[in-house]
């Protein structure tokens, strides 16, 4: 983990939208204030701060204009992490969970590096939650909390998104094999509340390339889904899974969120850069190999 943080040091994660926050930060704010960086002049209106009048322009033009500058503010970032049973896979390595944790902590370290407060809520029966803070030790607290959890059960993600305040950045880290539609709907509501929504889809390499021997595939979150699976079904499985990933990504992007697919075989540091790059307006890059 320290290697991950070291490789992400100095990275910035700009917000896709103007932040609503009032505390000074690094993100462009919706508010125009007294920052030294001039952005535009506006005719003086009753009620404006007279200290913002450009007296030189008044002298030249006999018209009162006030100087508007770009304000920058903090952008709180909330991580909603899926810790359901489907994330505890493969059962021997827990690669999906470990990748989700690495991505969460990597993004959190970038956000904290910019001074943004970072909070965490885990979809787990323990209802693990960490309030948004930017103090020293926040990252260590996140590491301790996530390392102590074992993914299990099937706690829905959508209710957790409803807790986010307007104007924050929300990052959903999940495999989206649970209540994906509800999460997307809740995310759409967040977007309407000026939130910046990012969806990080974690997929295991073994899900993209399952074993070829005949097995009876059982969904870990639903025993009712148990189907024979052998190499004759491989093509159909690949097509259906790929179609789902494609449709889901399209739906999330239409909702206004970014969608980044990260495989357990990908390097977490590079994946974090891709996620950040997606939020900067670059096109979404699928996980390599699919």
């Amino acid at each position: 983990m320290p290697t991950l943080f070291d490789s992400l040091r100095g990275l910035t994660w700009p917000a896709r939208r103007r932040a609503l926050g009032v505390l000074p930060g690094t993100h462009l704010s919706r508010l125009r204030g007294t920052a030294p960086e001039l952005s535009e002049y506006r005719l003086y209106r009753q009620g404006d701060d007279p200290r913002q009048l450009d007296w030189k322009l008044l002298a030249r033009s006999d018209r009162a204009y006030i100087r508007l500058a770009e304000d920058r503010s903090l952008l709180a970032t909330w991580f909603v992490v899926d810790a359901s049973a489907s994330m505890a896979w493969p059962e021997a390595t827990l690669a999906k969970w470990r990748t989700a944790v690495a991505l969460t902590l990597g993004l959190a370290s970038v956000a904290l590096g910019a001074g943004d407060p970072v909070g965490l809520v885990v979809a787990h029966h323990s209802h693990a939650r960490l309030a948004a803070r930017s103090r020293r030790g926040t990252l260590r607290e996140m590491v301790t909390m996530l390392e102590s959890l074992a993914p299990a059960g099937a706690v829905p993600l959508a209710p957790l998104l409803a807790d986010a305040r307007p104007g924050v950045r929300v990052v959903v880290v999940s495999d989206f094999l649970g209540d994906e539609a509800e999460v997307r709907s809740a995310g759409r509501a967040l977007m309407a509340g000026h939130c910046d929504l990012h969806a990080v889809h974690v997929v295991a390499a073994e899900e993209l390339d399952p074993p070829t021997r005949p097995i009876r595939a059982v969904d870990p979150e639903s025993d009712r889904i148990a189907r024979p699976f052998d190499e004759t079904m491989r093509t159909a499985y690949d097509a259906r899974f790929a179609e789902w990933r494609r449709d889901t990504a399209t739906a999330w992007r239409h909702a206004g969120a970014t969608w980044t697919t990260v495989s357990t075989a990908d390097d977490p540091a590079l994946a974090v850069r891709r996620i950040i790059g997606a939020s900067s307006g670059a096109s979404v890059v699928e996980a390599a190999g699919r």
Binding site: W89, L177, R216, A217, D219, W244
Partner: peptide, 18 residues
């Protein structure tokens, strides 16, 4: 009976007779 294997994406396996 083939061995039962946990697979989160089992829903994408075509639902054919066992």
């Amino acid at each position: 009976q083939p061995e039962s294997v946990s697979l989160p994406t089992a829903r994408f396996v075509p639902d054919e007779p066992a």
